[in-house]
């Protein structure tokens, strides 16, 4: 395997680990909002590695997994994750992403978009006020995931330099 192949395989392993860790933290350990949304982070990373169609399928799959635990708003996560995955794949044609600042900004915007779409599609009866759920909780959650992406980027970048 050449260097590109190794990098791609490592990245998909990382995405898989993020997915598993997300469900371990949210379902297995029941950390709830205290745990970061690693599913969206993994999806955003994966979306830039694959084609638009495959990214959408991955988004739908992860969204359905989230919806499986959501009784009152089934489908909202599927829509949000599919849109985010498709959007993430499209950014590949718009941004090269060489800058160190790109990844946190990309993850922050992706996560916030996911929360916004989720809030819109989940239904009036279930959702909280826009300011509370999207502006406040969404911004904090997005910063949280962006911070993790930044740390991960630094760690893996440093690891790659060795």
């Amino acid at each position: 395997m050449n260097e590109v192949d190794v990098r791609t395989v490592s990245l998909w392993i990382l995405v898989g680990l993020l997915f598993v860790l997300h469900f371990v933290l949210h379902i297995g350990l029941s950390y709830g909002r205290g745990a970061p949304d690693l599913l969206t982070l993994g999806l955003l990373i994966a979306a830039r590695e694959t084609s638009l169609g495959r990214a959408s399928v991955l988004g739908l799959t992860t969204g359905l997994l989230e919806d499986a635990m959501s009784v009152l708003a089934f489908g909202a996560n599927s829509i949000a994750m599919t849109i985010v995955a498709a959007g993430g794949a499209i950014t590949r044609d718009l941004f090269v992403g060489d800058s160190r600042h790109f990844l946190p900004a990309y993850v922050f915007m992706g996560k916030w978009t996911r929360d916004l779409v989720h809030w819109i599609t989940m239904g009036r009866e279930v959702r909280q006020p826009f300011v509370e759920q999207v502006v406040l909780q969404g911004a904090v959650g997005s910063l949280y995931v962006a911070g993790i992406a930044l740390g991960m980027s630094w760690l893996l970048g440093a690891w790659g330099d060795v």
Partner: peptide, 21 residues
């Protein structure tokens, strides 16, 4: 340097758009 690859695979644009839709 970002830790994701800069040259992702890409299929046929038309088929991708259809699948996405």
């Amino acid at each position: 340097m970002p830790f994701y690859g800069s040259e992702p695979e890409s299929g046929s644009p038309g088929r991708d758009l259809t699948l996405t839709a």
